[in-house]
Structure formats: C-alpha cells, structure tokens
C-alpha cells in the first residue's frame, strides 16, 4: 500500500487520539458542559473507513462521534469550540459534543438516539440513487444500535433498493455497561447481514489497514450500484461510556488485552519495523498534531459563548 496514504492514516488516528485526550483534559477543567463520549481506542475504524471516501461522500455519526467527523475532515477548531459550547462551534453551540455536523464535507450530523442514524443514511443513499451520482453514504453505529428496530428497517430498505450505503458497526463489546453477549446470541453483528441478503464481514477494527481494505471493497461495490454492505469492526473504547464512567464492569484482563492491541501503537510498530517511516518523521508528525490540537483548544477557549437570545433563532428555516 502507498506509504504516503498509510502515513496519512497514522496522522489522522493520532489527531483523533490527541484531540480526545485534550477533550478529556478540558473536561477535567470544567470547560466542557454536559457529558462526553470519547472515541479513544476506536480510531482505526473511522480512519480506515473515511480514508476510502471523497469529500462529497456522506457519513452519519453517533454520540461517540468526534473521531468520525475528524476522520472525514472536520475542522478541529470548530469541533472543539462546539464541544465547549461556543458560538464559533460548528453548530453555534446548539449541538455540542453529541451533535457535530459539517454538511460542507458530507458530515450529515451526529445523532444521539442510538440507531436513529441508520435509516437516515439509507435516505442519503436513496438521494444519491435518485440524483444519479456515484457518491456513497456511510453509517457508523455501535453494537448496541444493532438491536434497535431501525437497524432492521434501515438496512432492509437499503438492501431491497440496492442503495450505495456502507453500514459500519463499531462493535466495542459494550452498550454502556451491557455486554454484547447479554443481549444477542450471535457472535458477530455481521452475521445478521444474511437476513437482508447483503454481504456482511467481521474484521479486526483495531487494524486500520484491515478496515481500509474491507471498506474499500464495500465502497467500490456501492459505487458500482451493487448495494449496501455491513462491515463489523471489533474494537474497544479506552475509557468508559461517558464522562468519568470508570467502566468497572469490564474485566481487568480484558482491558489490558485490548490496550495492548491499541490501533495507533500497533501501526506505529509496524511502520517502524518495516522501515517505511522513520522515528524522526513520526516525532515531527506528533509535534505538528499536538500543536494543531492545542491550537484548537486555545481557539475554543478564547471564543465567546453564544448570546442567550440566539436560543430562539433557527427553529425554522
């Protein structure tokens, strides 16, 4: 694979990781109102998928969505400002951490109702088909969402109409504190694809190159008009579900095992071993990313809050 492309994927994953660490830090300083759902640990999914997408392709995101949006090209300053509730944020402070959107780059918004994005992505796929373009729509959702009725309705509709949608299940093994094994008998979410007559694949979601390859197939298939694919990426969140959830429901050994499979250190090790990239280049990259994340934090902190009265604006077009 093209070294430059892999390096770019590494950089994006790092950007998401450092961004999330910064969000966590700012949260600790009481600068983030409400709650946060960090993406740290799952970076390979968003980056592996979005590295196959064009600017005019769509994604639909979730409450754990910072990573999806950054991977699709969202501006760090505006994302951080939105998370801090500032007027310079993507939604002028009306959305917050769970509702980042940037329609100019195809980020159709993060919905915080679990599973609600699935039919919306199907609709974006329908729009693509009716307009006759070769765009695709990607829907990110978790293992928890796969037990919602919208999963069945939305994927079935995309399947029967052969819509250009890639359904990406980020299976991080837990829906809040509920283990996947408590709530479904099949081992893999992707097994459900056969119920809709579409391909379903389960891949190592902490291997960005595997994610890239699997979604590449799915994206090509979608662009050819052959319909949707369900791609399940097994992954793990480093932190708890939200805020300061200590995630004590997860066995220590399990956490340690997954931390050892961290997608970023894994790719870094691989790149260094192969000699495709040098330590010096990686260090330089890390420095640049750290600076851009810090700049986003400064931008957000310096931005003012929206004027209270603007709460009344924009309910209708």
């Amino acid at each position: 694979m093209d070294t430059e492309k892999v390096a770019e994927m590494y950089r994006k994953m790092l950007e998401i990781r450092l961004f999330e660490e910064k969000v966590f830090e700012l949260y600790g300083q009481n600068l983030v109102p409400g709650t946060i759902h960090l993406y740290a640990g799952e970076e390979a999914v968003a980056v592996g998928v979005c590295s196959n997408l064009r600017k005019d392709d769509y994604i639909v995101s979730t409450h754990r969505g910072h990573g999806h949006c950054i991977a699709k090209g969202a501006n760090l300053d505006k994302t951080m400002a939105e998370i801090l509730g500032r007027r310079t944020g993507y939604c002028g402070g009306k959305g917050g951490s769970m509702h980042i959107a940037d329609f100019s780059i195809g980020v159709l918004g993060a919905t915080a109702v679990v599973g609600a994005g699935i039919p919306i992505a199907t609709g974006a796929g329908l729009s693509i088909k009716l307009r006759g373009t070769d765009q695709v729509a990607v829907c990110f959702f978790g293992d928890g969402a796969s037990n919602q009725g919208t999963f069945h309705e939305g994927i079935n509709l995309a399947a029967i109409w052969k819509l250009p949608v890639i359904f990406v299940c980020e299976n991080n093994l837990y829906a809040m504190g509920t283990r996947q094994t408590q709530v479904m008998l099949t081992k893999n979410v992707a097994e459900r694809a056969c119920a809709y007559g579409i391909p379903g694949v389960t891949i190592d979601g902490n291997d960005v190159l595997a994610v890239f390859q699997a979604t590449k197939e799915a994206v090509l298939r979608a662009r050819r008009g052959e319909g949707p694919t369900l791609v399940e990426c097994k992954t793990y969140r480093h932190k708890g579900h939200s805020r300061f959830d200590p995630a004590t429901y997860r066995p220590k050994e399990e956490v340690e095992e997954w931390l050892s499979k961290d997608p970023i250190t894994r790719l870094k090790r691989q790149l260094l071993q192969e000699g495709t990239i040098s330590n010096a280049v990686l260090a330089e990259m890390e420095k640049e990313v750290t600076e851009s994340v810090e700049a986003a934090a400064q931008f957000a902190k310096k931005s003012s809050f929206p004027l209270p009265g603007t709460a009344l604006e924009g309910v209708y077009v």
Partner: peptide, 8 residues
C-alpha cells in the same frame, strides 16, 4: 435544522 446550527 436547529441542532446543527442551521447547516441543513
């Protein structure tokens, strides 16, 4: 329309 700050 509202939640995404009028973007859509």
């Amino acid at each position: 329309h509202y939640m995404f700050g009028g973007q859509a």
